[in-house]
Design a protein around this nucleic acid. Structure first.
Length: 300
DNA sequence: CGCCTTTGACCGGCGC
DNA sequence: GCGCCGGTCAAAGGCG
């Protein structure tokens, strides 16, 4: 987790240094213009010029240090990845306990793939650094789950926030909560409740390392489009000032917003339109419909 | 009143 | 077969 954020902050700092450099140059130039455009050798403008040179040199040194730090960071990250890979293989070789979840093959939505790409570093880190040196079964299982499912990591805006609401643009119904062995924080189970036939489920649990991070694991693929226009805002936050980090406002309950939408007179119409839209995108449905219209049985 | 969350009970897979 | 564990069910209560 820290690696990803470090990456961002390093890049940010590098850009900041460049910006400071430009600002200093512009300030110096404007001062020179204000003093007549030329830079007399023994004036205040001259001092500014020397100050500019000194700061530029300092910025250059800082950039070099930053570059070196980035290189070291990348090397360390690569080493960690290799180590994790070896550790994972060793765990599998010793015969880990494989549970039901490991067998389930799931699909991922495009948005979730995007998020996975953003949080690849987190995925390795969060499942490895929290426990003893021993290779625990549960950890291996968790890695398998996260590798096969779409896992999204969400940083909450409040550290004391105890809710597990992740605004991802879909409508979810909580059907269970469980405290698992390897994490003191409860794991919540959600089903997609927008369409009755939608098979998607998600598990939401706080990270054992950092309780401000929520880990959401999605299983299945939505057979409908997104429900809440505003609910998709969480995903859009990837491209804001806080890249690779989603924000969750613990005070906002998506289900409450959905509850209101149910009371709107146009909701049923919207529901029908959404379902029709999703069905027309389903090739199986198209085939079945074509077969029904032509009086033949659909080939499955 | 309808939908939601909560939560204890239950079920089934897995290792021993 | 037994116990552990994660996942699911369903009744009860809350909320708008």
């Amino acid at each position: 987790m820290e690696f990803t954020l470090l990456d961002t902050s390093l890049d940010f700092n590098s850009r900041t240094l460049r910006v400071h450099d430009e600002v200093l140059k512009q300030e110096a130039q404007s001062n020179f213009i204000g003093l007549g455009g030329d830079m007399p050798p023994n004036t205040e403008a001259g001092d500014l010029g020397e100050e500019l040179k000194r700061l530029s040199g300092e910025n250059k040194k800082l950039r070099e240090m930053l570059t070196a730090m980035c290189d070291k960071y990348n090397n360390l990250r690569n080493q960690l990845m290799e180590y994790m890979s070896k550790l994972h293989n060793n765990c599998n070789a010793t015969g880990s306990r494989k549970r039901k979840a490991e067998k389930t093959s799931t699909t991922t939505t495009p948005n979730n793939n995007l998020l996975d790409a953003h949080f690849n570093g987190i995925n390795s880190e969060s499942s490895s650094s929290d426990e003893d040196s021993s290779c625990k079964k549960s950890r291996v299982d968790d890695q398998h789950i996260k590798a096969k499912n779409s896992t999204v990591y969400v940083r909450t805006t409040g550290g004391s926030d105890t809710t597990l609401i992740v605004k991802d643009g879909y409508q979810w119904r909580k059907y269970g909560q469980k405290v698992t062995r390897d994490n003191p924080y409860p794991r919540a189970y959600f089903k997609c409740s927008f369409a009755p036939t939608c098979p998607v489920k998600k598990k939401v649990q706080r990270s054992v390392n950092d309780m401000s991070i929520i880990v959401a694991t999605y299983e299945g693929e939505h057979n409908h489009s997104k429900v809440l226009e505003g609910g998709g805002s969480a995903l859009n936050l990837i491209s804001t000032d806080q890249p690779k980090t989603l924000l969750v406002n613990g005070n906002e309950k998506m289900s409450s917003a959905v509850g209101h939408s149910h009371k709107q007179p146009d909701f049923h119409k919207l529901l029908i339109e959404k379902m029709a839209s999703s069905l027309t995108k389903d090739p199986n449905f198209k085939a079945a419909l074509a077969a029904a219209l032509s009086g033949k049985k659909p080939s499955t």
